[in-house]
Design a protein around this nucleic acid. Structure first.
Length: 257
DNA sequence: CGGCATGTTTCGCC
DNA sequence: AGGCGAAACATGCC
């Protein structure tokens, strides 16, 4: 589930911890820098930000980075902002906890609990964000077009590249290209300024809608469908599926050109 | 059982 | 140097 939209939902949820002090921490040391727990203990949380798909917990010491990988998720004060991973069972096993931050008694649920069955996620201190592109909510058409103009491979692959635009994942990219009417296999340098303008407009509107609805699984196009694909909700043409940019991709060959 | 998974990093090749 | 594709990572699900 975690793309930039999920990170934003979790960022907003974790914001309730601003002003609190971390009283205790437990981590899976395989996914954290050495000494992580003792470093963050007694730090005061001052702000919660997002950079692309990363949630940043600012403190009066180092910034804590939450990197969700494919299956990471967050529970705040015992309640989950997003109920379950929609391609997983919804189980929530204690052995999958990778980080717990308490801001009071350890008898209470942790203020922040990072749970990740697959362990592709990790936590960091003062993460290097210098190689992230402009955020998906604020990137400008001129910026995106300039980068796409140097790409000969599929526009979908470019949009998934976090150096190009930060925050988009496989689900959102298929959704946005569907709305923009752009075929995912088109070469990046073949996409016109006009099309990039249209795509950015779609991004701003549709990402906002999906955020309000609960994240990247709430669009109309779903590349996760394994069996027979439905027809295109816009024009009734059969949706197509292929591997583009090394990812499963779904698009409508009728209106995405 | 085999294949697939919403992500990132690394490696080898151009 | 930087774009590109494939492989690897670890684990659960269908």
């Amino acid at each position: 589930m975690p793309e930039g939209l999920e990170a934003e939902i979790w960022r907003a949820a974790i914001e309730v911890t601003v002003g609190r002090t971390i009283t205790d921490a437990s981590v899976d040391e395989r996914v954290a820098p050495p000494g992580f727990a003792s470093i963050v203990r007694d730090l005061r949380i001052t702000a919660v930000r997002r950079a692309g798909k990363v949630v940043l917990v600012d403190t009066d010491g180092p910034t804590i980075g939450l990197h969700f990988g494919m299956t990471g998720r967050v529970v705040v004060d015992g309640s989950a902002p997003i109920e379950r991973l929609s391609y997983a069972s919804g189980r929530d096993e204690a052995e999958w906890n990778r980080l717990c931050l308490w801001t009071g008694s350890t008898d209470q649920p942790p203020a922040v609990r990072f749970n990740d069955p697959r362990r592709f996620g990790h936590v960091s201190l003062d993460p290097d964000l210098s190689r992230l592109g402009p955020d998906m909510f604020v990137i400008k058409p001129s910026e995106l077009h300039a980068v796409l103009a140097r790409r000969r491979s599929a526009v979908k692959a470019a949009l998934l590249d976090q150096h190009v635009v930060a925050g988009l994942g496989n689900l959102c990219v298929d959704e946005l290209l569907w709305w923009a009417g752009i075929a995912p296999h088109r070469a990046g340098d073949d996409v016109t300024v006009e099309e990039v303008r249209r795509l950015i407009g779609v991004m701003r509107r549709r990402l906002r809608v999906m955020l309000r609805r609960g994240g990247s699984t709430t669009g109309v196009i779903d590349p996760r469908v394994r069996s027979e694909l439905p027809d295109c909700p816009r024009d009734g043409a059969p949706l197509r599926r292929a591997r583009i940019g090394s990812r499963t991709t779904v698009w409508c060959a009728a209106h995405q050109r």
